[in-house]
Design a protein around this nucleic acid. Structure first.
Lengths: 197, 197
DNA sequence: CATCACACGGTCTGTCTCGGACCGTACTGA
DNA sequence: TCAGTACGGTCCGAGACAGACCGTGTGATG
């Protein structure tokens, strides 16, 4: 019941249980696999340790069922729901973080062979196309279901990002970054002044 | 001289030293701050411990200078350069990872108040605009310098991503995700088949 | 009926990562 | 001479992470 620091991972767990109802870690593991997992990956071991922490903090309630195989089912307590709601309503200060090995390699490419870049770009184009196809398939499968509609919205963000990357690597391999730049400026209704901090 | 596992962080260190020449951790800290740091953040403490590991593995050479303040200067060894080059030439298997708290909140928003979403979106729009302004300023400052040109290219990727996010949140707040979708499809020369597997 | 393979459900471990608090040391200028 | 502040660095505890590993049921097979 002591207070703990809640990390994003904590909120993923709370959130998943809020959306799905009482769940075992294994349930979470599978559910995460084809939803949040796409844009916030973490090892499945966390889905066993994290609920334990949250239960210790009183945000989840544990009920152990022992018929046949041992199963720990966690459900949201009132204070768990409160914590989640408070987080959802709180301002988001951090900017998103990208971790892109390809971008790193590009940054340091001067040190290596010039030939590396086209290869890299070609790989990336393929990967992003594949990922786009996966996302599109998900939209196709679940897009019709009104119940899952709200969660599908984040897919649009994901797609937008994938396309952005795809356009970049394509332009790079075609040596046409300027056109990219121009298209970008055209596509956005004038971003306005940077609202000096 | 024993072998170590090289993480992306290791390559950031090797890469920075390759680009800048011999450096102290503090140099790296500052250099990272206004370059790689934008798309691959890590705590500065790593910039003290990581070079040590790399030196132990023979990829960096340490020279301690003791005039006045103690300074550890690391420089690239041949095998360090080789390791970096090999990495640059190696295929990149992992997809990029995003960590976006705002996206998480959006995903779980059904659980909270409906009013949260517009607020969130507005915040995000502002943040992305600010970040775009920072990037543009960097382009303006360094874009003219041919020496730093290669490294500027990654800024284009960053900008492309920022604009993608900006467009998404803008569309969301305007309730016009469909237009976003259509614009996306128009903007890309047909992505082609997902190249099975 | 025995047993084997395999999906299920879960645990554990060691190593790295992450922030952030904290601490001397020089230089600067009042 | 002293305070303030940039410099340069260390340390620590909590979490994140990958991945090896392990019991348990179940259905197929001989």
């Amino acid at each position: 019941m002591s207070t703990v620091r809640l990390s994003p991972t904590s909120y993923v767990v709370l959130g998943m249980i809020a959306l799905r109802g009482p769940s075992t870690p294994y349930d979470l593991k599978r559910a995460v696999g084809h939803s949040v997992g796409y844009f916030w990956n973490f090892p499945h071991a966390q889905l066993y340790s994290e609920p334990e922490r949250l239960a210790a903090a009183g945000l989840l309630a544990l009920s152990v069922e022992d018929s046949g195989r041992r199963r720990r089912t966690y459900s949201l307590t009132d204070s768990g729901r409160d914590a989640l709601r408070a987080w959802l309503a709180s301002p988001t200060d951090e900017h998103f973080q990208m971790r892109d090995i390809a971008e790193l390699k590009l940054f340091f490419n001067e040190v290596g062979e010039p030939g590396n870049v086209p290869t890299l770009a070609t790989e990336q184009i393929k990967q992003h196309q594949e990922r786009i196809a996966v996302y599109e398939a998900m939209v196709e499968r679940f897009g019709g279901d009104p119940a899952s509609r709200p969660r599908m919205i984040t897919l649009e963000l994901g797609l937008e990002m994938e396309y952005a990357a795809l356009r970049f690597w394509t332009a790079l391999v075609e040596g046409d970054l300027d056109r990219l730049r121009r298209a970008r400026e055209r596509s956005t209704a004038t971003p306005g002044a940077p609202t000096s901090e």
